[in-house]
């Protein structure tokens, strides 16, 4: 299938990308890996008139050790994140997550920044972003700012990102070993339920994706955690659970508890 007509601009710097975005407003879309955007455009569900390709901006592409944190540029692909030794050593829950996104071809092209900005409620990263308490660094015409994990996700395909802002990097505090477990949607292989859990001192942090229209920190689980798996019963406390063709509200709620339990078992 062929997308509706658009103009393509390859941005060579972050500043240029932001200025193009300000200039074209809502008619423009940022193209990163393109693995969410391009299929939607081919189906003509999404029809931006301008595509700003940030794929060539080197400044967005590296994974670095920042001392107490690992910083991943927005353009890092799922493959790079899954296989980065820095990520494996210091934020292994993130590499576990990246490894089960899509398929091998998708992981080579899809980027963490693109995935986060797209904010599909069934995408995998948000669970790890929340569980590691990562910070999303963004830049727009009003300058740079950091958005905390819990503030970033705001709803289905909705984030705290301003209209002319782009994600530049994500900063993951180094964490103890964690785990990401996922119940795959059988067709798309997105997460029906995805649960990331990491040790945090004596406690834990738990991020859940796929269950609600917004990924969330399972605070009730974190509070109830007593070293056993019984806290899993609190997986959906205070949460509006989604329902769709692949999992009703009741079943998804059940799965959330099962997968939190499985994550806790692996901690």
């Amino acid at each position: 299938m062929i997308p509706a007509k658009f103009d393509y601009i390859k941005a060579t710097s972050i500043d240029q990308a932001i200025s193009l975005l300000s200039q074209h407003g809502y008619e423009a879309k940022i193209l990163a890996g393109g693995h969410s955007l391009l299929p939607a455009m081919k189906l003509r569900l999404n029809r931006p008139s301008v595509l700003i390709d940030i794929g060539g901006i080197d400044a967005l592409g590296s994974i670095t050790d920042e001392g107490d944190a690992i910083k991943a540029g927005a353009n890092c692909t799922h493959y790079e994140i899954a296989n980065s030794n820095l990520v494996k050593s210091h934020v292994n829950v993130l590499s576990q997550t990246a490894r089960v996104i899509g398929d091998v071809q998708v992981r080579y092209r899809g980027t963490i920044g693109g995935s986060l900005a797209h904010a599909d409620p069934a995408s995998d990263y948000p669970a790890a972003i929340l569980a590691t308490d990562a910070t999303i660094s963004v830049r727009g015409s009003n300058g740079a700012r950091d958005i905390s994990a819990t503030e970033f996700f705001q709803g289905i395909f909705t984030t705290a990102l301003g209209e002319d802002e782009i994600i530049t990097s994500i900063r993951f505090p180094k964490t103890a070993n964690g785990t990401y477990v996922k119940f795959f949607q059988s067709a798309s292989r997105f997460a029906v339920v995805g649960c990331a859990a990491v040790k945090n001192g004596n406690g834990i942090r738990v991020g859940i994706t796929g269950v609600a229209d917004t990924p969330y920190r399972a605070s009730a689980v974190e509070q109830a955690y007593d070293g056993t798996t019984s806290a899993a019963d609190h997986a959906i406390d205070g949460v509006d659970v989604m329902s769709d063709h692949f999992a009703s509200e009741e079943y998804r709620a059940h799965l959330a508890k099962v997968f939190v339990r499985r994550a806790l078992e692996q901690l």
Binding site: Y8, L31, G34, L38, P39, L43, D53, G55, D103, R109
Partner: peptide, 26 residues
Amino acid sequence: DTSSCGACTVTMDGKAVKSCTVLAVQ
């Protein structure tokens, strides 16, 4: 049309990609 089937897989700079989800300009 959804990057699902993989029939269009080619390698790009040594990595397998679904060529239906890469623009020629990219």
